[in-house]
């Protein structure tokens, strides 16, 4: 069964002389958080804005719950909520006015509960320009979801936020997902994508360079797994010790650090060696390549991934 709520097929976007998006295809399933990653100019914003109905596609098809965003603007409004990267609100809007304004245009009662939920209850009467960056983002998200849209677009939602504001936005995103909302998340923040997204697509020069779950993407890369080991007597420091699948080794602060292409044989051999030397293991840490490592690898290759 096709459970896709966002369908992008062979989508193209061209600006006078340059091709911003060159025939990309992907689906986003209902209730999924889908991350759209890519360097500046990769085509993320063009894709997002075309899905939001702000730009027209120059080729291919776009559908949100079966609706063509380029043609059915009114139907689209009920289906999507958008938190834009830029403010998108007049400076003199009070928090409660902004909520009332957009709710009346959506034909619903003002969602004062959402103002409380995003922690802006005490800022109800504050004007938009009086809010901190984090508060503005939280208000933006509250306004985007006020009419309970099944699809929410978030463009760099946590960019420039402090840790607490970022955590609060992530909690809200998880709540939305738990309620069945589909989220398309465009971000530069690899840790955020890795933590929040069920699947991600990496865009490069208008094409999809890689797509899958964060785990799948990090597993398929050529990145080396980092194994850091500390023992009681430092037996690993003896000259001539080598271990399978290790490509690089170094020491730092009593730790022996190995970069392995195949973690299983490396760790097994390390433990065997330590035991054979009558030494004892104090600490062992394994760090897989991160999404950021994979992203850098793909962008360095120029999209061959």
């Amino acid at each position: 069964m096709n459970d896709a709520i966002i369908e992008v097929h062979d989508f193209r976007k061209i600006y006078s002389t340059s091709v911003a998006v060159d025939g990309i295809s992907f689906d986003v399933r209902r209730g999924e958080i889908f991350g759209l990653l890519g360097p500046n100019g990769a085509g993320k914003t063009s894709t997002l804005e075309s899905l939001e109905g702000l730009r027209r596609a120059d080729g291919g098809t776009l559908r949100i719950a079966g609706v063509d965003p380029g043609r059915r603007g009114r139907q689209l409004r009920a289906l999507i909520g958008v938190q834009l990267q830029t403010s998108g609100l007049p400076d003199s809007f009070r928090v409660e006015e902004a909520m009332r304004f957009f709710c009346t245009y959506h034909g619903i009662s003002p969602r004062d509960d959402l103002i409380e939920r995003v922690g802006l209850g005490e800022k109800r009467r504050a004007q938009y320009h009086e809010l901190s960056g984090g508060q503005q983002r939280r208000l933006g998200l509250a306004l985007a979801v006020a009419h309970n849209p099944p699809v929410v677009f978030l463009d760099e939602p946590t960019s420039g936020l402090d840790v607490a504001s970022r955590a609060m936005l992530h909690d809200l995103m998880r709540e939305l997902q738990a309620g069945g909302t589909t989220i398309l998340l465009a971000t530069h923040d690899m840790a955020e994508a890795s933590e929040m997204a069920n699947r991600v697509a990496i865009l490069l020069r208008g094409r999809i360079a890689a797509m899958g779950t964060p785990m799948e993407l990090t597993a398929t890369g050529a990145g080396l797994t980092k194994v850091s080991v500390r023992t009681d007597t430092g037996c690993l420091g003896q000259p001539g010790t080598t271990f399978p699948a290790v490509q690089q080794a170094q020491t730092r602060d009593d730790y022996y650090i190995y970069f392995s292409t195949d973690i299983g044989p490396t760790v097994a051999a390390l433990i065997t060696y330590i035991t054979a030397q009558n030494d004892s293991l104090v600490d062992l840490r394994v760090e897989r390549p991160t999404l950021e490592d994979r992203f850098l690898e793909i962008t360095a290759k120029g999209g061959a991934g």
Binding site: E52, G53, L54, R74, R77, I80, V82, L84, T86, S87, G88, L89, P90, F102, Y105, H106, L143
Partner: peptide
Amino acid sequence: NAREAGIFRSYKINGV
């Protein structure tokens, strides 16, 4: 100023 600040885009998305 409203157009340059993206306020009209936000309005469009929300059906204004």
